[in-house]
Write a protein that binds this DNA or RNA. Structure first.
Lengths: 238, 238
DNA sequence: AATAACACAATGTGATCACAAAAAAGATTA
DNA sequence: TAATCTTTTTTGTGATCACATTGTGTTATT
């Protein structure tokens, strides 16, 4: 026959003291999803995860529910939970949603960007360039998120970041697969365009820069060949 | 002194058989939030809600976590939970976010709207007009949501509805306060404009119609006077 | 009378248990 | 051998309990 169940290898998050176990489990599982450590379609059980993370089932239960509410996990009718499967169409929808929402968030944040924020963004941009030169794709990905987050949160009344993070989370596993091939491509630094637009307080140019940044960061991940490699991963047919 | 705690009056959702208690509690609390039955800033405790709903603390715990993840509730630093307070700026951000995301969702759904879907939308539109004439604002609000939902879900690969519902949930309590004054205003029927745009497959016109629909539905709720009446509701200063 | 110290009650977190439903495995039959 | 039925195991759900922490009301002190 075939092997029983594909094993799950989860890297444990730092166990910061004075943080609840539930929060730690949530962080750990969230990272595992974003890092693609859990195959889409693979059924997750509370007890199994509890054993892996060496905690009682209770914190796992809560973390799973939270992640499901954030669309990071999907509850099947059988009330079993798994990482949602991806399709080319859905991938495309997620990207377009990112562009629509994030360019909106950027434009809304623009009036609030002062000198201090601007320098913060510049510093992040430099770090990204550095990590890029060193070929440290892991850091590029994280720093890139930090750049976007720093931009949007400049708006103190901002309400879209949770929605954006939800989209990141859904794209996460598949972006990662894409970025592994990222170094092969010439990468236009759209962040410079964004910085210029910010300095000029040009909302429209900023939106274009953000849109391009998103599009190029994941364009080749959307190619049917690459996508289809990962769409039907965990063998179940339905 | 002052009264101890403001009592909570929650209308219980229909207890559909073969649905888990957690789901029922979730539905009940979700409705309570949208209907403004829970005052913003009012601290909620698991045990109190469990007693009101006559269930064990466990389902309440799970429902609260889910609602928090959907931004319907907010976890204070004390890890106590409450309906988030509203500010005029935040209200505005939520409206603008709705416009950006929903007009995007509408445009993305447009190509998928066939004759059957079109008729479904027309039927909903007629129901809304009818409820409007009868002054049944309760139904108008619900049917209006159904209209938007039916439009966006025409796209079978749609991914934004959960995000949109999150925004509805956050605006819910305050929209309701607004709609109570709605009959005083002349209401342009933007749904007709939307229907026309859909028939013509004119994405841009559709986006404009949706944007106008959202803006007018809540415009006067955003007036400082009306808003400030409800912003500092539950007396706590911080 | 205002404030600080204390004691008591209430709360979230996490663990454990019981149970019905669902999966998986095994046995049986065509 | 393939399909169907039966048995066994596993799983999510919900209830209850223990405990450390926080909130609250009371008393004592200046």
């Amino acid at each position: 026959m075939m092997d029983k169940k594909s094993p799950i290898e989860i890297t444990l998050a730092d166990r910061d003291e004075s943080v609840t176990i539930t929060q730690w489990v949530y962080r750990t599982l969230r990272n595992a999803v974003m890092n693609g450590q859990i195959l889409p379609g693979r059924a997750l059980t509370i007890r199994e995860l509890a054993k892996i993370l060496d905690v009682s089932p209770m914190p796992v239960r809560e973390a799973l529910r939270q992640l499901s509410a954030e669309n990071a996990l999907e509850i099947q009718g059988n009330r079993r939970v798994m990482v949602p499967r991806m399709t080319a169409m859905k991938f495309n929808e997620l990207c377009e949603a990112r562009i629509a929402i994030e360019s909106h968030a950027a434009a809304r944040a623009l009036p609030y960007i002062d000198a201090i924020r601007l320098e913060e963004l510049r510093a992040l941009d430099r770090l990204i360039d550095k990590a890029q030169d060193e070929g440290n794709l892991e850091d590029v990905s994280i720093l890139n998120q930090n750049f976007h987050r720093a931009l949007y949160t400049a708006n103190p009344h901002q309400v879209t970041l949770p929605l954006i993070e939800s989209l990141w989370l859904q794209l996460g596993p598949f972006m990662r697969l894409a970025t592994s091939k990222l170094e092969e491509h010439y990468l236009v630094d759209r962040h410079n365009e964004a910085m210029t637009a910010i300095e000029k307080k040009d909302a429209f140019a900023l939106q274009l820069a953000i849109a391009s940044d998103i599009r190029e960061g994941i364009a080749f991940a959307g190619t049917p060949e690459l996508l289809n490699n990962f769409i039907q991963q965990a063998g179940a047919p339905a």
